[in-house]
Structure formats: structure tokens, C-alpha cells
Nucleic acid binder design. Structure first.
Lengths: 217, 217, 217, 217
DNA sequence: CATGAATGAGATTTCATTCAT
DNA sequence: CATGAATGAAATCTCATTCAT
């Protein structure tokens, strides 16, 4: 554990600055200074600045996918809607507990780089598969309306990422504090409302049971 | 209004690179090279690189707000829902016709800088005022459900920005082409569905009339 | 002429240091300091440190080949031996008047790099062609003995380069001053002796006339 | 004499890289990686990188001089010319069997450093003494022409080192393979030709006997 | 209005070396 | 005897900016 003390300090400092100033807006020296270690450690542990970037993004998506996968594996025991809502809840919680990393990764995803292209063809393709499958099953079971799945995914992902990409906007313009305890719970309910109103079949009976899902933050 | 050729070339090149590589990831030399002009022109026309940034972002929001305002001014002649949908449509069209600039500005908004803070307290505060007022009127008129307005705005803005922040994701992961003609129309319908299902009062009679709003792209 | 003052100063300083400390043993800062210009000028004029290397080496060989070529073109007017001796003389003079550059280039040629490989397939292949042709004609005309040309070239080039690769050795070990006026003349005579004794046919009559070639240093 | 495995591996790796990339162009990490040992071993065994350099160069010259000395000691039993040719042969063989080290050392000798100056005042001064003495005796015995000894040494050393400094040039430009079996033998004959034609007195009777020296490679 | 030359500051990376284990 | 972690120094390179023309 002590062996990687330095590495951990670098990661924390990097996430901090990448979050606020962006990857290109942050110098390795700043990171090293904040981490109170020598600059050369960045090369030592991550080869170079870009290696640090890759490490952080990959790391983020490893955890992200694990969260989705573990809910996806319960699809046989649960209804599609239940499953979808649990995925939504878990993603919100994952993003909440990694909010600096999340903002930075989501921002980085908007660039046209080789790395991002690779991320898309691996992690994001998998994510799409899981979501698509959940929606397909839900539609087959008549839980969900027959909708264009890609467009549903766009809306869902838009909603899931918005508060974590723009926390400053929420706080300073809308006066909603995305870092405070109850925000996630409240926002989860909003997405649930959207699922119920815009995705689920109105007369679906399973709605009731799903309402019982509570956020344990 | 009649910009010199050089200034215009710089702007185009800057938007191109800022869109794909980000502001900090782009050097003024790259911009000058692509624009086929001398680097010193950037200082000449925009004082410095940051001036170019400010110019582009302000420019974006000037146009953006004008679009919202002109619909907002029709609030007396139209129902809140009609107005909201027209605003949605116009924003989509504005973003579509400035897609490179839009992606870059939306990305830049995720940073914590002085400039962005200023943008928030000016342009985005205004935008919030317009949206809030539309929703308030709609609720008062019983067109809209009584909902937490900030949360509605979060969802709306999440949906509005998603395809323009992540065109690559739409194209390569979801195989939806956000730059093709019919996308905006289709996506507009999705947001309309959301307004009808999750925002509007279900028994609202005006729903019918609103369906008539057609996108003239 | 004033435009390239800086470039020229960089070149001079680079040649000076590359000569004594080698390319990898010299830092761009040292060069810039000696040249009394800003380090960035090296990137500005030569792209990077390696560009400076390429420039200097190419430059050397452009001049080197021009010297050989102009004598080679006189092959119709002169005997092969005369021509060979004039080439020898001119190479010695060229190396003498570029002694720092010469030592550095000859040393660099001993490395296994891409650049050197390219130099070999271009400049040195040409040089070999000229020398080979001179020897072939000389043999055909019975001026020269029938010898293995590559081996003659090895010996010739070994002799031509030795004093310019190892001036320090000549000075400090052999107490021969390769930079002093009369050295070139004396050394030229040695090579002429080698040509007469080891290359030329002993009964060749042209030997006499060739002796008249005097070095005008 | 029995080096630790690690030390030997370091030496081999160092010679390999110094040969192809030069001393300054090689990092201790590269050496350690190739040798499959830890970097710190280099400091441990050679104090520092420069210590490794000194070790290798000294080592080379110890062996080099031993080769010359053992022939020199036979001067009483043999003619000067015989002796000279045996020295030539042995140097060629020594360089051949240490070709990587040889190229690197010969290249390093072209630099102006303290270490090289020391090498010159020790090893190379000795070498000069041996060669000079052989030539002087030969001249006294009328085996050799009365020539300027330093100039003879320059030529001899130029010929001896050329193929080992520029193996790439021989291979790729002249298509002579200095590493193949028969090269040394053939090249030795060339130098012998030079000795006979340009150094020896033409009517010298000992020439015959010397022809019997055969290379046992 | 536009340019090429030049610069100073700083960013990233490399490197030899050290030290505790 | 050997290692992995860590460092300080320096090397290369990049960048925004300035200035004379």
C-alpha cells in the first residue's frame, strides 16, 4: 500500500486539476506540485502525460461498466423497467462518488482524438449494448413503448450526464447543488418520472413495484 | 458587419480546431496556418488568444439568446407550450447551423474559469429567466404540471445539448447522424414527446394544436 | 544578408560544439548561448535539433560532391591519374577549409541512424560512382594496375579522412599540425606517393606530368 | 577475471549500444534494459556512466597494446618489415574480434575530452613509440625507404581503422562485408601491398620471406 | 493591414544518480 | 548483490506574444 503512495497522490492531484482546468489546461508541474512529489514520477508511473490521461479514462470506464454489468446480469430476476431504473440509480451514484473524474471524462469525450475513438469502440459500445438490450426486452414484454432505441439512449444519457458535466451551471444559475446529499435522490426521481411518462406503457402494472426502489446513498 | 477577409478566416480556422481539439489543445500557429494568414493577425484582431475565445463564446450566446428572446416575446400571442416547443425547435436549429461552434462552447462551459463564470451570470442567467418564465406561465395556465422548474430545465438542457456535445458518440456508437438533414426534425419530435408526456398536463387540450408545429429546416 | 544573421550564428556555434563534443554531447542551449541568440531560433530555423543535424550534414555533402563532380567532368580532358590526384587535392582542401564541420560529419557517419543510411544511399553512393569510374578508366587506359576497386577506395578514403577525424591525435601524439599551412601540401604528396607506388602502373609515362600538379592553398 | 554475470551483461549491452548509437546517444536505462538488470547496477559496478566509458576504453587499449607489444618484443628475431606486417595482421584480428568495441572506441577518440587526452598521452603515445621504433629500425636496416615517420603512421592508422569505423559504409556503399571471414585476409593483403610498394625499399630481399605470413583467422 | 523574425516563459520529457530495502 | 522507487537537474520543444518593416 505504501508502495503506491506517490502514484495515488499523482492521480488525486491530476483528477483535481483536470476537472477544473481540463487536461490541456493543466501542466504536469502543477499536478506534481499539488501532489507534493517530483514531476518525473508522472513519467515513471504513467510513461507520460498522455499515459496518465489514458489511465484515468480507462479506470473510469472500468468502474462504470462494472456497475452497469452487475445490474444487467439481474435481468432474468427483474423486469426491464426495474432493471433500467436500478442502472440509472447506480450510474448516478457512481458519478456522484467520482464527480471530479466524471466531469473530466465526460468533457474529454467531446474531443476528436484517437483515444476517445478507442473508448467509444470499446466501453461505450458495450454500454450501448446493455442499454439497448434492456430496452428491447422491455418493449418485447410490453413494459416499454415501441420507441426508437437510439433516441431513447440519447435522452437518457443527456439526462444522466448533464448535472455532472455542468455542476457549476446547476449551482450558480439554477441554484441546485448537485453535490449535496439529497440531489441525487431527487434527480433520480425526475428520471424515474421520465421513464414512467415517456418510456413505459401507461397501463403497465409493474410500475407500482418499481416505485419501491429507494436510493441508499 | 463586413469583416475583413483575414479576420473571418481566423475565426473559421479557430472554430474548426477548437471544435475538434479544444481551446487549450489548439495553438495560435495552427489556427494561423489553417487560415493561411500570419500569426500576428490574431493579436491584431483579438488582442490575444483569450480574446479570440471571448469573442467566439460571446458571439455564440448573442445569437443564442436572440433566438430565445424572439420567441419569448411572442408569449402573449401563444400558449406556453407552443412557445416552449418553438424555443426548443429554434435552439436545435441554431445549434445545428453552428454545430462546430456549439460543441466547442458547450465543452468550454464545463470548465471553471472566470470567463465562464461571467457567461453564466449574464447569458445563462437570462436564458434561465426566459425558460423559467415560460414554465411558470404554463403551470399557472394549467398547461404544465406543477414541477420543480430547475429540474425541468436540467433535463431540457441535457437533451438539447447532448447531440451537439457528442456528435461523434451519436455517429459511431449509436449510428445516428446528427449532421444529416432529418435528424433535427426527428430529435425535435422526441423532445416534443417528452414535453407532452412528462411536462404537460395530460388532459390539456392545447396538445393537439401544438402538434402542428413543423420544422422548416 | 542581415535576414539570416541569426541562422548563421546558430550554424557556426553548432559546428563548433558538434566538432568538439559531438552531436549528442551538445545541448541546444549551449549552441544558443554561444551564438548569443534565443534557443527557440533553433526550432524556428531548423524545426528541431535533428533538423539542424540534417542541415549541416547535407550541406557538407552538397559542397563535397560539387568539388568531386567538377573534377570528374574534366575526365575527358585529363588522364585518370591526373584527375584522381586533382580530386584528392580538392577534397583535402575542402576538408581543410571546413575542418570543424568535416570532423563532425565524418564522426557522425560512424553511427547507425536512419539519417546516415540516407546519406549513404545518396551522397556516398554518388561519390563511390565517381571514384569507381575514375579507377575503371585508369585501369582501362593502363595507367592503373588492375586492382580491386572497393579496396582501393577503402584505402583512399581512410587516408583522406584520417587527419580530419583525428586532428588531436596528429597534434598531440604525432606532433603533426593538421591545421597549419603546409600540412595539406605535405599530406597531399604522401597520397600522391601512394598513388604512384601502389595504384599506378610503374612504367606509366604520365607520372611525370602529374608531378607538376601543385597545391595552391 | 571471473566477472559476475550482471557486470558482464552490462558490458555487453553497453558495447552494443555505444557501438550503434554512441556513448552520449545511449542512456543507462537502455543499457540496463537490454542487459536485463537494474539500472543501479551500473553505478554499483562502474561508479557512474562515465566510469563505464573509461572501463571500456581502457580495456580496449590494454588488449590493443598487448597485441602490439608481443610482436614488438620479437623485433630482435625478425626483420622490421616482418614485424610490421605481423603487427598489422594482429591489429586487424584484434579489431575484428572486438568490432563493436573497436568502432565505438575509435569514434570516441575523435572527441575532445579529458579522458581522450589521457588515452592519447598513455596508450596512443606508447603505440606511436612501437610503430616509430619499427619504422626507424627498418629504415636503418635499409628495409624501408627514408620517409617521414609521422606521415607513414597517419596512413597506416587510417587504413587500419577505416573498415572498423565505417563497416556500414563498406557494406552498403562498397558492398564489401567487413564482418565476413575472408575480409580480414584480403584487406591484410592490401596493406601488405602498400607496405611493399610505398614503404619498403624496392630491391629489399626480405620481401620474399614476408610473403609467407599467413592469416590464421 | 499584414508579415517574418525573434523572444521569453514555460511545458514535457529524459536522464543519471541515489537510497532504503 | 540487486532492486524499485524517487529525485533533481537539465534537455528539448512548444507557445503566445511582440516588434520592426
Amino acid at each position: 500500500m505504501l508502495k503506491t503512495e506517490t502514484k495515488k497522490k499523482v492521480i488525486d492531484a491530476a483528477v483535481y486539476y483536470f476537472n477544473t482546468k481540463g487536461f490541456d489546461g493543466t501542466s504536469v508541474r502543477e499536478i506534481a506540485n499539488k501532489a507534493n512529489v517530483n514531476v518525473a514520477n508522472i513519467s515513471y508511473y504513467f510513461e507520460n502525460k498522455n499515459g496518465l490521461l489514458e489511465y484515468l479514462i480507462s479506470n473510469f470506464f472500468e468502474g462504470y461498466l462494472k456497475v452497469i454489468e452487475s445490474r444487467f446480469d439481474e435481468l432474468d430476476k427483474r423486469s426491464a423497467k426495474e432493471c433500467l431504473l436500478l442502472v440509472v440509480k447506480d450510474i448516478l451514484l457512481y458519478q456522484k462518488s467520482n464527480r471530479h473524474l466524471t466531469r473530466f471524462v465526460l468533457r474529454e469525450l467531446t474531443l476528436d482524438t484517437l483515444l476517445i475513438r478507442e473508448i467509444m469502440t470499446t466501453y461505450l459500445a458495450k454500454e450501448r449494448y446493455y442499454l439497448k438490450t434492456i430496452f428491447e426486452i422491455g418493449m418485447k414484454q410490453k413494459e416499454f413503448k415501441k420507441l426508437a432505441i437510439p433516441f431513447i439512449i440519447i435522452q437518457l444519457k443527456g439526462m444522466l450526464s448533464m448535472p455532472y458535466l455542468h455542476p457549476q451551471y446547476l449551482a450558480e444559475v439554477l441554484h441546485v447543488m448537485p453535490n449535496e446529499e439529497y440531489f441525487t435522490e431527487q434527480y433520480y426521481k425526475e428520471i424515474e418520472r421520465w421513464v414512467n411518462a415517456a418510456v413505459s406503457e401507461p397501463f403497465e402494472k409493474t410500475v407500482k413495484t418499481n416505485n419501491q426502489i429507494a436510493l441508499s446513498i
